[in-house]
């Protein structure tokens, strides 16, 4: 295992990791995965350790298992998504589950049945897990209250996107060997980003320092209370960082003028080689995708094979979602069996 090997080479880090974060939890006690908020370091480590197992399996010839054979996973997406939907679909299929994808356009929601009605309808078909993405913060939690299967939040409004934060964490851990005592700069459209919120929560929980780098209009009010440092100047913000996490500029979510122009945004807050030079020489470049090349990130750094782990993030996405689905569905089966 990569993590074990890292600790063999760096015994001090092993001590630190154990003393700061402790070992993985022996079980995941929640019925759902709605967000990073409320997860303990041990629970996060539990998911990541399991995901690491799948990451290795996914690279081998024998990718599939039948641990979830007979289980039904419904992907209910109220927002268009190719990457996350595909990732969840593949994850469920590799575990042997039956998968149904439902993509509901936001316009038809207004005309048709409510979120709760849809939830009740799907619930009546006895799925084992519902994977839900919705444009409104809190919508996935609302839905989870009305169903009796496991619910995975695949992104709700600007609130949380827990599997993204977990896959980012797994990617970081594979390269840095730890998730504590790192300085992580999250850069760009924080205001509209659920990825930023989940990452702040996860990295803080695991003992890393988080910086936010963005123009003032894209920093939400009082976010400093979440335990982050705020920078408006990118060069200053990237100074001595271990990780540079870029966010997509979500122009489609913006009401009013948050930035004057894409050109100006790239000039001050786009990641290029000159700004990156302020970070540590071995700093990783991350992006949750899809990238706006030339808007928040220059192609030259995005495609830098030495530094960019953007493609590995996609790979880890499948592994993390396999781990999450496995843990939740097996939990649910155990609970269902008792009832």
């Amino acid at each position: 295992m990569l993590r074990a090997k890292f600790f063999q080479d760096h015994p001090r880090e092993m001590c630190n990791a154990m003393s700061v974060m402790g070992p993985a939890a022996d079980h995941y006690p929640h019925p759902h995965l709605l967000g990073i908020e409320g997860l303990t370091p041990g629970e996060i480590t539990l998911i990541l350790d399991r995901a690491q197992h799948y990451a290795e399996k996914n690279r081998s010839a024998d990718k599939t298992s039948n641990i979830l054979a007979g289980a039904t996973v419904v992907n209910l997406f109220y927002e268009n998504s190719t990457r996350t939907l595909t990732s969840f679909e593949l994850a469920a299929k590799r575990l042997g589950a039956d998968v149904i994808n439902m993509t509901v356009g936001t316009s038809s929601v207004k005309k048709g049945e409510t979120l709760i009605d849809t939830a009740m309808t799907l619930n009546a078909m006895n799925p084992d897990a519902l994977v839900v993405r919705h444009g409104d913060s809190g919508a996935v939690k609302l839905l989870s209250e009305k169903v009796n299967c496991a619910v995975l939040n695949a992104g709700d409004g600007r609130h949380e996107h827990p599997t993204q934060a977990l896959l980012d964490a797994l990617t970081i851990r594979r390269h840095k060997g730890r998730l504590h005592r790192l300085t992580v700069a999250i850069c760009g459209d924080i205001a509209h980003s659920r990825v930023a919120r989940s990452n702040i929560l996860l990295l803080n929980t695991m003992g890393s320092r988080v910086r936010l780098v963005a123009p003032p209009t894209l920093i939400p009010s009082k976010i400093d209370r979440m335990g982050v440092e705020i920078f408006h100047d990118m060069e200053e913000g990237l100074k001595d960082c271990d990780i540079v996490m870029m966010l997509r500029l979500q122009l489609e979510r913006m009401e009013g003028s948050f930035i004057p122009s894409v050109r100006e945004y790239f000039h001050f807050h786009g990641l290029d080689r000159a700004k990156l030079a302020n970070a540590k020489p071995d700093a990783l470049i991350m992006h949750p995708g899809p990238m706006n090349r030339g808007v928040e990130i220059d192609s030259e750094v995005a495609d830098d094979v030495e530094r960019s782990v953007i493609r590995e993030q996609v790979e880890m996405g499948v592994a993390v979602r396999m781990a999450a689905l496995e843990i939740l569905v097996l939990n649910h089966r155990k609970l269902g069996g008792q009832a």
């Binding site: 609130h159 919120r197 939400p220 009082k222």
Partner: peptide, 12 residues
Amino acid sequence: SGELATRLGLTG
């Protein structure tokens, strides 16, 4: 608006 709105991801 404020900390809670930011945490919940709601427009404040």
